[in-house]
Design a protein around this nucleic acid. Structure first.
Lengths: 206, 206
DNA sequence: GATTTCAGATGACAATTGTCACATTCTTAT
DNA sequence: ATAAGAATGTGACAATTGTCATCTGAAATC
């Protein structure tokens, strides 16, 4: 498995070469320290995988990846990051990168490379754990932590469907006044001002 | 690395045991062929990873995973599938599974297991390529098709943040009355009744 | 130059909304 | 049996909201 490593910090590049080659299954055919290096090394060596830092002083890893993927959409690019920065990761995903690994997590680098080599994509749990939330459009949020009762939650859900008090009342077989009272309590508990903020809260916490 | 393997087809379970243990790094401590087996084996052996088929005749792997994850959210569950079925995969993601591997792809099983063991999550490229689209949803919706102008869209966005008319007016340097007029037009264009429905509409079309 | 268009504003109005204080049940625990 | 509590309801009130007809001034169009 031929790999090109690109990291802003040259020392990291060399260390990685040592670590990776110690596995006996990876051959580091090039080490670079800028986005431009990444492009040049990739085009010259055509490695199986390009392992690259996201943040680099000269050209960002993302920009480099964009250029590489534009000319070779099959390029397997795996990012190395220090922190999992949402914005970056999502941009990386969009452009078709194969994942990212936290630098701290040395032991997982070789297995991750192999998984990518075999056509998988690899991500840290922190990102993956957020994906479901992003995908999930129709689930009811859990408001119990705010001391919201079952009935109150029902009303919240109806407000979040755009119903007015009269409609909610008739849907739940309550008087309109009761619905108002409930709503008043709900707003107090959630520290919100009006039903629109409640709907917003609902969807932002969905 | 202790692994429990569960597959509808007993032969697959045994074959996997052979393949996995040949690597010298995996110890298959249990083989099952139903969702119930998965639950029992998981609770008994507390393996590092549960490798499980999604489709099984008696209890689906997803149902079993749900039960296991309910009592042990840290459980590392990796699904084996024959085809990458969107619905299933997304449900698996939602409940916190660590990924899935196509059965055909024998070579990638061991590396994927190791990546998961090291805290990563692993997915086939087909799913990953769809995630960006799903994530894309967190951007401002495009209302132009409803004949909504730039300014109107601004107001919609502020309503969707929960602002009242006075706040919107001061944010956009308009009079409150103007904001009301805008809103009135917006509601007319979108065939909605009030600002709450507008906020709801915003998030549903996000 | 006259006219139309458009963004913004005003004021009036009714409807809806949120708040509050106070009833009325009905259940439950003491 | 009584007190406490919920769940539900009422009426009054002010604030916010949505609608509408109308006005202004500037820019664009003719």
């Amino acid at each position: 498995m031929k790999v090109v490593v690109v990291d802003d910090d040259k020392l990291v590049g060399v260390s990685l070469k040592t670590i990776l080659e110690a596995s006996g299954e990876v051959q580091v055919v090039g080490i670079g320290c800028s986005g431009q290096d990444a492009i040049d090394l990739y085009r010259h060596h055509k490695p199986d995988i390009l392992l690259m830092d996201i943040r680099m002083s000269s050209m960002s890893g993302l920009d480099a990846a964009e250029i590489i993927l534009a000319s070779d959409p099959a390029a397997r690019i795996l990012f190395l990051t220090t922190f999992s920065d949402d914005e970056y990761i999502i941009r990386a995903l969009k452009m078709g990168a194969r994942g990212y690994i936290l630098k701290q997590n040395y032991e997982s680098i070789v297995p991750s490379l192999k998984a990518v080599y075999n056509g998988q994509s690899v991500f840290g749990d922190d990102i993956v754990s957020r994906i479901p939330d992003m995908l999930q459009k129709n689930r009811k949020p859990d408001f119990s932590k705010y001391g919201i009762s079952e009935k109150e939650a029902e009303i919240i859900a109806l407000v979040a469907e755009g119903m007015n008090n009269k409609e909610i009342a008739s849907a739940l077989y309550l008087s309109e006044g009761t619905v108002r009272n409930y709503l008043s309590v709900i707003l107090e508990k959630l520290q919100l001002r009006d039903r629109t903020q409640l709907a917003v809260f609902y969807y932002k916490n969905q």
